[in-house]
Design a protein around this nucleic acid. Structure first.
Lengths: 323, 323
DNA sequence: CTGAAAGCGCTTACAG
DNA sequence: CTGAAAGCGCTTACAG
């Protein structure tokens, strides 16, 4: 906004400033061997100073195989959830910044990814997911988002986030705190559930789980489930730790329809901090843009055959009106 | 799948086959002047034969301004709806086929689009939407999806689709058919509502509208609304024409919870034919991939300053178990 | 009307 | 470790 878009500096400009050849700059930038550490450092610094952005076009032209990154969406239309849309959004931006081009693949189209893309980002992984093996057999470098595992991966601190939310409710004096989750046996839920259990253990309280069957509409399903529960026992809980903001919204609506005040009689927390959806909701914020950027960074490492690693992205408790 | 990906023919290959220079091929392909009609025809024929695909990378490299297309999402987190995700998916693929690169812009980030992209696709337009004016003032060619209007646009046959669904219920012998919509006063709803009214008029029945307030979770909101209505008057309707599959899902659940059989006592239709969500649901199918492809085609026309046009994409009634 | 050549920004053998 | 040069596919002055 403030600064001129300016003809973004290219490799030649960096070479000029560093007083070296463009070949050296290219090597430094791409982490290729055959260059001294000192020179690499100097070049990297300069490229940062001039806010160098590689030209996707040029890279693609050379590689023939365009710098196309296939973004493989999750099974069971998990991908049709708000959280993922935000992720897509940031992923397209983060990839473009690095001169890469995104193409989306519905889960059942992922078999065609290797022939159209040179790298992949896997979303919504599940148990026995065939995609990692597929990528390996086609030698497609990939990063997965959401779960730690073999190879490169990025995930928010699920466990810690739920731990923070639960402990927050304990500190607020809540004693009957239930955990509301969607398919609690899934590996993904396991982490969040773990954080809940830990906080309750520390407080010496009993855990109580509300396991919503996997569903396309968590808010509606959560609403119905909680409504039935409250009909039988209106005072069952004074705190609800929800696995997602959507689930929290469903619970909030059910509480309202049953005349229970929030946070007076029941406190509620969510997870994700989605725009609009999390308005007024105490929740755990994920840095979705950060996750996207980190994924792309790791993808670069994967393409450079560096040793795999998992990165855990920090989360943050955001206290609003529901607790 | 069947044919080898094969190194796609390039401009040089076409020149070789035609026995001319690559400059002539380029001119022919791009409709540039300075080439005889006869030669142009010959070259065009050959390029068709070899299924020539221009290299986006090379073109971008030259134009400097990359073929970056900003996809601007709608207001109020409309974009967080399943339908749009499918659209994004097909849009990324369609753009890539034409050598263009997608970047997503959240609605409130659209102001930054002109400096980052050379063209735009606008989704989820609303009344007094400032985006078209913004694009014009920055001379960014654009296409909008979802509503006819000035300039280029693509939309499914909303009106006709709902007309088909409503007439279908009439033919099935339904007499008390209500229309369930989300924010019925919006321009988008107007079209669908029009199709409903037309079919009822033809049958000589009374229209009845169920207007769900605009909401982040249509399924839940529709569920609650219908539940209350059914508590007062269980036999109020024998047919429900829903504006979207999501709304239909909410209604179906409400009917189930009230012990009403579908389609025995009440028939239900949706709109969109979303995967999983529309399973077993009688609905109106949109050709989302077709809409995406057409948008990209029109974008090409917009960039070439051709006269603006609106394209209406056909829809199709899909009869399943709920009617 | 047609062609030979330069050049877009980058990577990568090939020399040194 | 470092550099000069070729080349990815295309467009566009510049000559003819």
């Amino acid at each position: 906004m403030s600064r001129q878009p300016s003809k973004t500096a290219n490799i030649r400009e960096i070479a000029r400033r560093a007083g070296v050849s463009i070949a050296s700059v290219s090597r430094a930038l791409n982490g290729k061997p055959g260059i001294s550490e000192a020179l690499r450092e100097r070049i990297l610094t300069i490229s940062r100073d001039v806010e160098y952005r590689p030209s996707a076009a040029a890279r693609q032209l050379i590689s023939g195989k365009a710098a196309v990154v296939g973004i493989s969406l999750g099974r069971r239309d998990f991908e049709l959830r708000p959280y993922y849309i935000l992720l897509y959004q940031h992923l397209t931006v983060a990839l473009h910044r690095q001169g890469m081009v995104p193409i989306f693949f519905a889960h059942d189209r992922t078999a065609t990814l290797p022939e159209q893309a040179g790298a992949a980002i896997l979303l919504g992984e599940f148990a026995d997911d065939p995609r990692p093996a597929l990528m390996r057999s086609h030698r497609v470098p990939f990063v997965r988002i959401g779960l730690a595992g073999e190879g490169f991966s990025v995930a928010p601190e699920d466990r810690h986030g739920i731990y923070l939310a639960t402990r927050h409710l304990v500190e607020k004096g809540r004693r009957h705190i239930a955990f509301v989750g969607d398919e609690l046996t899934s590996p993904h839920s396991q982490h969040r559930l773990g954080g809940y259990r830990q906080a309750l253990d520390e407080a010496g309280f009993e855990a109580e789980l509300i396991d919503i069957p996997p569903n396309l509409d968590p808010a509606l399903t959560g609403y119905r489930w909680l409504s039935r529960r409250l009909e039988r026992e209106p005072r069952a809980y004074d705190g609800l730790v929800c696995e997602t903001d959507e689930l929290a919204r469903g619970c909030l609506t059910a509480l309202e329809d049953h005349g229970l005040s929030v946070p007076g009689e029941v406190a509620v927390t969510g997870f994700d901090d989605l725009p609009t959806l999390a308005e007024g909701l105490t929740t755990v914020r994920q840095d979705i843009a950060g996750i996207a950027a980190m994924s792309v960074e790791l993808l670069g490492e994967a393409q450079a055959s560096k040793p795999p690693r998992h990165v855990s992205m920090p989360v943050e408790l955001v206290v609003r009106e529901t607790s």
